[in-house]
Design a binder for these strands. Structure first.
Lengths: 118, 118
DNA sequence: CTGCATCCCTGAAGATACTG
DNA sequence: CAGTATCTTCAGGGATGCAG
């Protein structure tokens, strides 16, 4: 065995690498709150480009993290939401914020002393 | 308020971005098991280049995640280990492996059906 | 309103060689 | 054995224009 472990390991890195993009986390948190339309996410995630939002959404959708629902109306209307897996992923990812908050001073101290102390 | 939150938010992204590198996670898990010398990590993390190991280690050290201990011996000897914060970070990061394992089938299904189903 | 294609720039990561 | 510097390659990400 070890095959299964290797598979999970590799996939985990893929996911990790995938959501490490500049916009995955913000988008995940935005959609995580409630279902939003493309334009709404675009407006909420200030600074993101048109292309990157599409790209980010596509990647998350590909991994079953984001659910995409298209309304065949005259003005196209597409809604995005998180799947159950997506919500779980969001929770896991946001624990990093908790870690950061917890070790805030430690991190600052390390950075401040980096290169000065041995 | 909001200032503190923004600070944590930005820092969290920095950390997130930092450990999203190709070798941060493997190195973190390697050193997390026990203190290792540069060469030992280099050998254990097969595929990594000399430069990338140094760079990865430096980045983690900068954030107070990795502790670096230099032995002023004739053949240089440098040992790396995780700080308490590092162990905590390692734990948080590895939860992603748990998430991956849990939603393995879901992810596979999503990827398989991506582009085929509406 | 949404999505896709193209061009361009920057930064990550590999290979290699040199210093202590 | 450990660390740094240089060169190159390539994917991520921004801007813009076109299409359904």
């Amino acid at each position: 065995m070890g095959t299964e472990q290797a598979r999970v390991d590799a996939l985990a890195y893929e996911i990790f690498h995938g959501v490490s993009g500049k916009w995955a986390l913000p988008v995940l948190n935005l959609i995580g709150e409630r279902t939003l339309r493309f334009g709404e996410v675009y407006a909420a995630a200030e600074g993101i480009s048109h292309k990157m939002l599409t790209q980010t959404l596509r990647g998350l959708e590909r991994d079953g993290v984001v659910a995409r629902r298209v309304h065949p109306t005259v003005p196209p209307k597409v809604e995005y939401s998180l799947t159950e897996a997506g919500q779980a992923l969001r929770g896991t990812l946001n624990q990093l914020c908790g870690w950061t908050r917890r070790y805030l001073e430690h991190i600052d101290a390390a950075r401040a002393g980096f290169g000065s102390q041995g």
